[in-house]
Design a protein around this nucleic acid. Structure first.
Length: 920
RNA sequence: GCCCGGGUGGUGGAAUCGGUAGACACGCAGGACUUAAAAUCCUGUGGCUUCACGGCUGUGCGGGUUCAAGUCCCGCCCCGGGUACCA
C-alpha cells in the first residue's frame, strides 16, 4: 500500500536535515534573534522515556514557528554530564564515569534524533568536557577574586577592597561578609600576609569557612540545602546530618535582595516565583537588645509592637551565651539538653516538630522598657542559623511561643486584642494594642512603626531585614565533578593562574575516599600545583548548569567563556522550558551567576531566562495482573475478588488498553507465566491500571523509540501535545494515539487520491468556504503557539482537515499554507508534502501564512442592529469593529426587550449571529 | 499549618473580556463497503423525559451579584504540587 509511510519519510528527512545542516544558527545575522532553550538532560543509564521529550517537543514547535516568522533562532542541546549516578555506578563496577557517560550520551542522541528535533547540534556542550569546565573553573576564580559592595549593590574586584583597607581600614565599608573585627588602615598594614588573607576570605564571594553543613555519610559528601528534602538526600534518599566542616561556599546571600527584586521582571509562573520568594525568605523587622547582667542578648523580631507581651527569651541550644548565662544549679540539665540537641539528626529534629522541648537557664534578662526580669530559656525550636539565634517569646501572639509557654507553664500576656488566648495564640496582624504602655490604642501597623522609632531612639536596636537564604556550600567530596581550581600555601587558599586552566580531573585507582577519609581526588598521584597541594573537593552538580546557556552562544571559544559579540547578539534566553523540580536549585543559582557575571562586565543582562515554561510530568501507568495465591493461576481483573490474589506488575508494553497479550506475557517472563493457568473474561485477560512515577521498577517505562517505530515521530509529537495542557501532569496512555495517526493519514490523503497512489494538487482558485477554513486555522495556530496552548491547536488542525476533506479540497492555495502551519508539530510529513508540492528547499525556510480577518466574515451575516456604535462580534473569532448600519432591527427575546425599554443600546454583543447582550 | 494549582460526560480534555457548556479525540452503539478481515466512510452518544417535535435538568457543595455565571464575589468540601519551627 502506497499510503503514508512514516518510517521511511522520517528516516529520509532526518538524514536530509543532518546533511544539509538545516538548523545551524548563525552568530552573524541581520535577522532578529530568538533563543529557545531546553533544560539539558543528565544522561542516565535508563535512556529517555516518553516523558522526557514533552518539553523538547514544545520548544521545538516554538523554534520552528519562530523560524517561519523570520527569526534567527538559537535552539541548542547538550548534556549535564557530571553527577552522582555515574560515580555511584563507577564505585560498584570500576567502570570510569567518563566511559558510562559517553555511552549514555550516545544512546540519548540516538533517541533524540528519532523524534526529529531541530537542534543545532554543532553547538552541543557537555559540562564534563575539559574545554567546558575550564570556564566553570574560571567563573569560580572570578567569584574568589570578588567581594560584594552593599552600597553599590554589586560585586567588585577584591583588589579594590584591599586598596580601601590600605587607605582607611574596614570601618566604613558596607560589604556582604562574615563577622570581621574592625581595623584601621594602620592595623591592616601590620597584619601578616596570612592574617590578611584570612580576613579577605570573609569578604570573597567564593570562600572557605568552617560552617554547619548537611553531611550525607552514605554518599560521603556534603549537600546544599536544596539538595536535602525532608532530612534525606534528594538523590538516593539517604539520611543527612549536621556537621561542622571547613568548606568552600558561595556568598549567594549577598544577592538576596537582587534575586528577589529580579523576579518581578520575569515571565515565569507565579508558583515558581513564589517558591523562590519563600526560599529567599525576606522578613523585615528590628533587632532588639536585652540586658542580662554583664551580657546582652540580641534578638530579631518582625513584631516589635508586641514588646510588652514578652514573657521569656528563648536561645538556640547552640547560642554562644548559653554556657555563660546558665546558673550552676541548672548547668547539668542545660548541658544534657544541649548535647541531646546537637546529636539529633536533621531528620529526627524535623520528624519531631510537635514535641516541645527546652530547659530554663536560670538566668534572667531585663525588659528594655519595663525593667521586669525575664527568664531565659533554651529550646531547639529556635534555629541557630537564622536571625541572631535568639527570640523574644511573645506567647500571646506567636503560636510556637504559645506552645512552649503552655508546655512549661509560662505566663501568656495579651497585648493585641481580637483573639481568645485561652484557646490559641492570636498571630494576626490586626487589632488594637492593649497592656502596652505607650502603644496602647494603636492598631498593629502603626504600633510596629511607633515601636521601631522608640527602640531606635533609645538605642536598643534598629530596623533590620533578614533573609532565609543561606550561602551555598560548594565543595563536594566526590570524584565526578569539576575540580575546584585552588591550591593551598601555608594554610591559605590561592587560585590557580588563569593560563593554567583547566585543572583537569586526574586519573585515580578507585572512586572512593582515601583510607584517612579524604575525598577521592586525594588518591591522585602528584595532585599539586607548583609544588603546593591542590584542593581535593569538586564542584556540585549545579556548577556547570549555572551558565551553560552562555556557552551555547559560542561553544568552541578557547579564549573566553563566550565572545562579547556572541553574547551581545544572543542576549537573554527568550524562552526556557523545563521541569519545575528545579524551582529553587538550578534556577536560583543560574540567576545568581548571571547577576555576578553582569557585575564583572561579562554579560550585558541581569537575568538569564526571560520567559520560563514548566512542562508537567508524564507519569507512568502500570499494569497489574492477579495471581491466585499458592497456585500458578492468573485471573482477569474482574475476577480477582473471587480469589485470594497477589497483584503483579507486568510490562506495560505487552498490554493494549487493559487487554494483556498473553503470548507476549509468556515470553516476557517464561518461568512465571509460560505454563500458568489463565482464567479469562470474554476470552481476554484484563489488567488493572495504577498511575505513578515512570520507572523500571514498575515495568511501566515506555520508550519514545517504540512509539516512533509503531506510529511515527510525527504522531508521537502531535500526540504528546494533544494529551493536554503542557504544564499539567498527566499519566501516559496510548488511548487516543490512533486518532492522531488517523488525522495524519487524512492529511496525507488530502494530497493523494482515494487509492492513495497519486499525488494531486489543483491550481484552481480557492472558494470562500475554503479560505474561511484556512484562515480560521491560521489564526488559531498562531495564537495557540503564542499562548502555549498546543493541545487546542492540534484539535484545530483536525477540524481543518475534516472540513477540507468534506469539500474534497486539493487546492494549492489552501493546502500549502496548511502544511506550513502543521510543520512545527509534524515536521517530517510536512517536509515530504512540501517537496511533493514542488519545492526544492526545506519547509523550514517557508514563511508563516498571514491571517486575513476578511475571510472570516460571512456574507450572509448582516448586522441586524439599529444603532451607530461599537459592536463586538463573537463568531469563531473575536473581532472588534465599528459599524454603521442604516436599516436594521433589534432581535431580542422577551427578557431583553424588557431590559431595553426606553434605552438606546450602546453596545451589542453577537454570538454566531445571535444577539447575546445589549449594553445600554 | 502555610503558599500555589485544580475539581466540567464512560475517558483525555475544549469553552477568548461573564454570552449557544461539552469543541477535538478516545471509547461505545448502529450502519455502509468487503467472501472475510484490516483500512476507510456515515449516523448516534451528558442525564431524565418524549413514538416524535420538544421539554426539564446539568460544570465539587451552599449562598450571592447579573438580562446572562463553568467563568465574578462570600462560605465550605475534596484532590494534586511545593514548603515547613525563619521569630
Amino acid at each position: 500500500m502506497a499510503g503514508y509511510n512514516f518510517n521511511e519519510i522520517e528516516k529520509n528527512w532526518q538524514q536530509y536535515w543532518a546533511q544539509k545542516a538545516t538548523f545551524k544558527a548563525d552568530n552573524n545575522s541581520t535577522q532578529p534573534k530568538y533563543y529557545v532553550l531546553d533544560m539539558f538532560p543528565y544522561p542516565s543509564g535508563a535512556g529517555l522515556h516518553v516523558g522526557h521529550p514533552l518539553g523538547y517537543i514544545a520548544s521545538d514547535i516554538v523554534t520552528r514557528y519562530k523560524r517561519h516568522k523570520g527569526f534567527n533562532v538559537l535552539h541548542p542541546m547538550g548534556y549535564d554530564a557530571f553527577g552522582l549516578p555515574a560515580e555511584q555506578y563507577a564505585i560498584q563496577t570500576g567502570q570510569h564515569p567518563a566511559v558510562t557517560t559517553e555511552e549514555n550520551i550516545g544512546r540519548y542522541r540516538e533517541q533524540l534524533d528519532k523524534i526529529g528535533f531541530s537542534f543545532d547540534w554543532s553547538r552541543e556542550v557537555r559540562t564534563s568536557d575539559e574545554a567546558y569546565y575550564k570556564w566553570t573553573q574560571w567563573i569560580f576564580i572570578q567569584l574568589f577574586n570578588s567581594w560584594f559592595n552593599k552600597s553599590t549593590g554589586k560585586a567588585s574586584p577584591i583588589s579594590e577592597l584591599i586598596a580601601l583597607f590600605e587607605a582607611s581600614g574596614n570601618a566604613s565599608i558596607d560589604a556582604a561578609c562574615d563577622e570581621t573585627k574592625i581595623f584601621t588602615a594602620e592595623e591592616w598594614k601590620t597584619y601578616s600576609e596570612q592574617d590578611q588573607h584570612k580576613i579577605l576570605l570573609n569578604y570573597r564571594l567564593a570562600f572557605l569557612s568552617e560552617a554547619m553543613v548537611n553531611w550525607c555519610p552514605e554518599l560521603g559528601t556534603v549537600l546544599a540545602n536544596d539538595e536535602v528534602k525532608d532530612g534525606v538526600s534528594e538523590r538516593g534518599g539517604y539520611p543527612v546530618e549536621r556537621k561542622l566542616m571547613t568548606q568552600w561556599s558561595l556568598r549567594i546571600s549577598a544577592y538576596s535582595e537582587r534575586l528577589l527584586q529580579g523576579l518581578d521582571t520575569l515571565e515565569w509562573s507565579d508558583s515558581i516565583k513564589e517558591a523562590q520568594r519563600n526560599w529567599i525568605g525576606k522578613s523585615e523587622g528590628t533587632s532588639l537588645t536585652f540586658e542580662a547582667g554583664d551580657d546582652s542578648i540580641e534578638v530579631f523580631t518582625t513584631r516589635p509592637d508586641t514588646i510588652f507581651g514578652v514573657s521569656f527569651l528563648t536561645l538556640a541550644p547552640e547560642h554562644e551565651l548559653v554556657n555563660k548565662l546558665t546558673t550552676p544549679d541548672r548547668k547539668a540539665a542545660v548541658d544534657a539538653y544541649v548535647t541531646m540537641a546537637k546529636n539529633r539528626s536533621e531528620r529526627e529534629r524535623m520528624a519531631d516538630v510537635k514535641t516541645i522541648s527546652g530547659e530554663f537557664t536560670g538566668a534572667y534578662a531585663k525588659h528594655p522598657f519595663t525593667g521586669t526580669p525575664i527568664p531565659i530559656w533554651i529550646g531547639d525550636y529556635v534555629l541557630a542559623g537564622y536571625g541572631t539565634g535568639a527570640v523574644m517569646a511573645v506567647p500571646g501572639h506567636d503560636s510556637r511561643d504559645y506552645a512552649f509557654a503552655k508546655h512549661f507553664n509560662l505566663p501568656i500576656i495579651e497585648v493585641v486584642s481580637g483573639g481568645d488566648l485561652s484557646i490559641e495564640s492570636y498571630d494576626a496582624k490586626e487589632g488594637v494594642l492593649v497592656n502596652s504602655d505607650f502603644l496602647n490604642g494603636l492598631d498593629v501597623k502603626s504600633a510596629i512603626k511607633t515601636a521601631i522609632k522608640k527602640i531606635e531612639a533609645e538605642g536598643l536596636g534598629k530596623g533590620k531585614t533578614n533573609y532565609r537564604l543561606r550561602d551555598a556550600v560548594f565543595g563536594r567530596q566526590r570524584y565526578w565533578g569539576e575540580p575546584i581550581p585552588m591550591y593551598s600555601k601555608d594554610g591559605i587558599p590561592y587560585p590557580v593562574a588563569e593560563k593554567d586552566l583547566p585543572i583537569a580531573l586526574p586519573e585515580i585507582d578507585k572512586f572512593l575516599p582515601t583510607e584517612t577519609g579524604e575525598p577521592p581526588l586525594a588518591r591522585a598521584k602528584d595532585w599539586t600545583y607548583n609544588g603546593y597541594p591542590l584542593e581535593t573537593t569538586t564542584m556540585p552538580g549545579w556548577a556547570g548548569s549555572s551558565w551553560y546557556y552562555l556557552r551555547y552562544m559560542d561553544p568552541h571559544n578557547d579564549k573566553e567563556l563566550a565572545s562579547e559579540g556572541a553574547i551581545n547578539y544572543w542576549q537573554q534566553v527568550d524562552l526556557y522550558i523545563g521541569g519545575s523540580e528545579h524551582a529553587v536549585g538550578h534556577l536560583l543559582y543560574s540567576r545568581f551567576w548571571c547577576k555576578f557575571l553582569n557585575d564583572i562586565g561579562k554579560v550585558p543582562f541581569d537575568e538569564p531566562f526571560k520567559k520560563l515554561v514548566n512542562q508537567g510530568m508524564i507519569q507512568g501507568t502500570s499494569c497489574l495482573v492477579y495471581r491466585v495465591s499458592n497456585e500458578k493461576k492468573i485471573v482477569s481483573a474482574g475476577l480477582k475478588n473471587q480469589y485470594d490474589t497477589t497483584a503483579i506488575h507486568i510490562d506495560v508494553n505487552i498490554v493494549n488498553n487493559t487487554i494483556v497479550d498473553i503470548e507476549k506475557l509468556k515470553e516476557w517472563r517464561p518461568s512465571e507465566f509460560a505454563d500458568a493457568d489463565y482464567e479469562l473474561e470474554d476470552g481476554k485477560l484484563i489488567c488493572d491500571n495504577e498511575v505513578g512515577k515512570m520507572s523500571k521498577r514498575w515495568h511501566n517505562v515506555v520508550n519514545p523509540d517504540t512509539i516512533c517505530q509503531q506510529y511515527g515521530a510525527d504522531t508521537l509529537r502531535l500526540y504528546e501535545m494533544f494529551l493536554g495542557p503542557l504544564q499539567d501532569a498527566k499519566p501516559w496512555s496510548t488511548q487516543g494515539i490512533e486518532g492522531v495517526l488517523r488525522f495524519l493519514r487524512k492529511a496525507w490523503r488530502l494530497f493523494h487520491n482515494n487509492t492513495e497512489e497519486n499525488f494531486q494538487l489543483s491550481d484552481e482558485a480557492a472558494t470562500k468556504a475554503e479560505l474561511k477554513i484556512l484562515h480560521r486555522t491560521i489564526k488559531k495556530a498562531t495564537e495557540d503557539i503564542d499562548n502555549f496552548s498546543f493541545n487546542t491547536s492540534v484539535s484545530a488542525f483536525m477540524v481543518c482537515v475534516n472540513e477540507l476533506q468534506e469539500l474534497k479540497c486539493n487546492k494549492r492555495e489552501i493546502l500549502e499554507p496548511f502544511i506550513v502551519l502543521l510543520s512545527p508539530y509534524a515536521p517530517h510529513i510536512a517536509e515530504e508534502l512540501w517537496k511533493l508540492c514542488g519545492h526544492q528547499e526545506s519547509i523550514a525556510k517557508a514563511t508563516w501564512p498571514v491571517f486575513n480577518p476578511e475571510h472570516l466574515i460571512e456574507n450572509e451575516f448582516n448586522y441586524p442592529i439599529s444603532f451607530n456604535g461599537k459592536v463586538r462580534f463573537n463568531l469563531n473569532f473575536a473581532l472588534d469593529m465599528d459599524v454603521k448600519v442604516v436599516e436594521q432591527q433589534v432581535i431580542a427575546n422577551e427578557q431583553t426587550q424588557k431590559y431595553l425599554e426606553g434605552n438606546a443600546p450602546k453596545k451589542v454583543i453577537v454570538v454566531k449571529g445571535r444577539i447575546v447582550n445589549i449594553v445600554v
